[in-house]
Design a protein around this nucleic acid. Structure first.
Length: 193
DNA sequence: TCCCCGATTAACT
DNA sequence: GTTAATCGGGGAG
C-alpha cells in the first residue's frame, strides 16, 4: 500500500498536434522523464517557449536542414541541438508532419532522482539544477543522441507524462535570448517552489 | 572554403 | 553588468 503518486502514463499525442503557441502552456505542470529504473529522473515542467516556421527566431524559418530535420517530424518527437558548442536544448515537436514547429523546454523542477542530479550538477544548488534549457538537459542527461526519439512512448529514454491538474497561475512574456522576433509573447512559466 | 554568431552558462568586476 | 568557453550551422563568396 505504498503508492507514492498516481502513474498518469504517457502524454496523449493529439494534445501535441496543435500549434506550438497553443501547446506550450499546456505542457506546464507536465513531467519530463528520463532514464529507467534506478537511474530515473523526473522534472516538472515550469518554463517553455514556442517556435514556429514563420518565426524568424526559429531554426526552421529558412526551411529544412540536416540539423533541424527533427523539427519537421510529427508531433511528440524530441528535437535536441547543441548551442554555443557547449550546451544542449530540448524541444517537443508540435503540429502536423512537415510544419517545423516545436516547444523549447526552458526549465523543470526535479521531483525524482535528486541524488543523480546532485551528482551531475556537482557544486550547484538545487534551485539552479535545471532552471535553464542547457541546465535542464544536463540534469536529465539529454544530449544529441536523443534527437528524434518519441516522447509519447513510455519505453523511450525520454518521455512526457501529462500534468495532473492545470496550473493555477501561468505567467506570460517574451522569449529569452533572441536577436530577432523578440517581441512575440511566446514564453510561459510557473512560479518555482 | 571562410567566417560570423547563436533559443547559454558560469565566473568574473 | 561583462565576458570567456567552444563548435557547428549555414549564408556569403
Amino acid at each position: 500500500v505504498t503508492v507514492a503518486r498516481p502513474d498518469p502514463g504517457v502524454i496523449d499525442r493529439s494534445l501535441l498536434a496543435a500549434d506550438a503557441p497553443a501547446v506550450a502552456p499546456q505542457l506546464l505542470g507536465g513531467f519530463l522523464v528520463s532514464g529507467n529504473g534506478s537511474e530515473r529522473i523526473v522534472g516538472r515542467i515550469t518554463d517553455v517557449e514556442a517556435y514556429t516556421a514563420d518565426d524568424p527566431a526559429s531554426h526552421t524559418f529558412r526551411g529544412p536542414t540536416r540539423r533541424n530535420a527533427t523539427m519537421f517530424a510529427s508531433a511528440g518527437h524530441l528535437y535536441v541541438y547543441l548551442i554555443y558548442g557547449l550546451h544542449h536544448c530540448a524541444n517537443v515537436v508540435t503540429g502536423a508532419l512537415g510544419d517545423g514547429q516545436a516547444v523549447l523546454i526552458r526549465g523543470v523542477e526535479i521531483v525524482e532522482g535528486h541524488e543523480i542530479v546532485a551528482r551531475r550538477r556537482c557544486g550547484v544548488g538545487p534551485r539552479h539544477w535545471s532552471d535553464g534549457p542547457g541546465k535542464m538537459c544536463a540534469a536529465l542527461g539529454i544530449d544529441r543522441r536523443h534527437d528524434g526519439i518519441d516522447l509519447c512512448d513510455q519505453a523511450s529514454a525520454v518521455w512526457i507524462a501529462p500534468a495532473l491538474e492545470a496550473p493555477a497561475l501561468v505567467h506570460t512574456g517574451t522569449r529569452i535570448g533572441l536577436s530577432v522576433a523578440s517581441d512575440r509573447p511566446w514564453r510561459w512559466w510557473l512560479d518555482r517552489s
